[in-house]
Write a protein that binds this DNA or RNA. Structure first.
Lengths: 269, 269
DNA sequence: TGCAAAAATCGAAAGCAAATGAAAATGATT
DNA sequence: AATCATTTTCATTTGCTTTCGATTTTTGCA
């Protein structure tokens, strides 16, 4: 079914632009919207479709956009493909209030660690507006998320690429990280348990997190309710190391109470 | 009504001043309004349109504005992102062929280094089909390119993110890299010179490449023709360290001969 | 599904008015 | 008289539109 747009909007029509102005505007539009139609542009700028086609062809030759039938689309930017490959996890990011709560605990001047969990990614998303923050991470997605956040310095812990988690393992360059004075470290985990502490399903991931957790003044675990009581194969931090657990409503009351009794702050958002 | 200026021109120099003043005013107008029309300027300054056109042409040659039909618009010094995208598009064909030639030198089982140059990215592109290859890099784009190449193991050299080049600097984790037995290292460069060797414009980048170049059995420089004879601020390898230079037709013959005389293989694609 | 008709989109060519540049003429200043 | 900014004149170019036949995509129907 086709959507019929009622475009009776004379106010939106940009008339009498110079060629260069119109083409600049087209590039801007295509950057913003991702796609434009010849008809739409023709109406908006008050010129014929032939003229718009000439514009699009010229702009396509300058690699400023990609021509398609009926219009044009944004040029495939460097990191767009990766975003596509990892789209599933990104949707989660939008909804997470845990990320917001985590970001609120980060102050100007802080140096923090974010691991490769989806909750860390959510924190990174909410960090974009911050300034004078240094983020240390082993997550490719966190780097991607913060690539356009000029106020945030990003330090990536190198290593071998794990494609499943888009992260790097192998503990490369820990000596340099150790000099960084990390105030807070945010760790997702597969499970939290009184005995096993924070655990991960991947021993490699755990091997990266373990020494970094030891470096952080505060270890902050970010866990949704389902993680309570679960245990993964590899522990990377004991409960004694953990300062704060950020979780959502639905965390089992007895476990929360037990954890609090061990001196861990539990924040529910 | 015509505006008549009472111009008792007192001295010879003031004659030029009036012209210069009008042009300065035009530049100011264009900066403020974003756009000006020839007719509008003609009326405002009380001179003919031909004169205004001469003004606009002169100002356009000085890059103080952009000429259009009927007027002129402000110079667009907007997105650095776009500039980056454009820079990346330059000489695509040549770089692709250089990348192909570089990729052909990589065999099964090899461990190679790729730096954060666009030619290295081209090599990565042609490496996608290879198997049992390990790529060490400090380039975010190389990682991205190889993310969906399951036959290629990727090791990222960590460090501080440089957004302009999408690379990581700071020499994190070089000890681990040193254990890797790198057969070949591919290095783009800002210039190649008999005395300075391979040079880069960024000291930080050079600081990463220098120790890695020292680790590689073979240092292979990948350079398009424009790089010959240029020198950047920071050297990262002497010519003696270089085994092969891959370049395109158009490299200056004398320099190529001189480099060959120094025992460096030069491959032209 | 599959295929043909219909609709949308496209490129080339022709036409037109505004804008342009080149060259000669004007005019002011020295 | 000489110079130089400016103007006038005019043939040419540019930007745009309209038209029309050729494509491509979508739709309708089996």
């Amino acid at each position: 079914m086709k959507m019929i747009e009622d475009n009776r909007k004379p106010a939106d029509v940009l008339d009498d632009l110079y060629l260069a102005e119109r083409r600049r505007a087209i590039v801007e539009l295509v950057q913003m919207q991702g796609r434009v139609a010849v008809t739409e542009l023709s109406q908006r700028f008050g010129v014929s479709e032939v003229t718009i086609r000439a514009d699009l062809q010229a702009l396509a030759e300058q690699k400023l956009l990609v021509r398609t039938h009926g219009g044009a689309v944004r040029i495939d930017n460097d990191l767009g493909e990766m975003a596509l490959a990892l789209r599933r996890q990104r949707q989660v990011k939008e909804k997470s209030r845990i990320g917001q709560a985590g970001a609120e605990r980060i102050e100007e001047g802080d140096a923090v660690f974010l691991d490769s969990s989806s909750t860390s990614l959510a924190i990174a998303h909410h960090l974009k507006q911050h300034r004078y923050v240094t983020v240390v991470t082993n997550s490719l997605e966190v780097v991607h998320e913060l690539f356009n956040a000029p106020g945030v310095d990003v330090v990536l812990v190198g290593g071998v690429l794990q494609r499943e988690t888009a992260s790097f393992v192998g503990a490369h360059g820990l000596e340099e990280i150790a000099r960084l004075n990390l105030q807070k470290g945010f760790f997702g985990a597969h499970g939290v348990d009184l005995l096993a502490g924070l655990t991960d399903v991947s021993p490699d991931e755990a091997a990266v997190k373990r020494p970094i957790a030891a470096l952080c003044r505060q270890v902050i675990a970010v866990l949704d309710a389902t993680k309570w009581g679960r245990v993964g194969v590899a522990s990377f931090a004991t409960l004694d190391q953990v300062s704060v657990i950020i979780t959502d409503a639905g965390a089992p009351g007895e476990m929360v109470a037990a954890v609090r009794a061990r001196g861990v702050e539990v924040a529910t958002v």
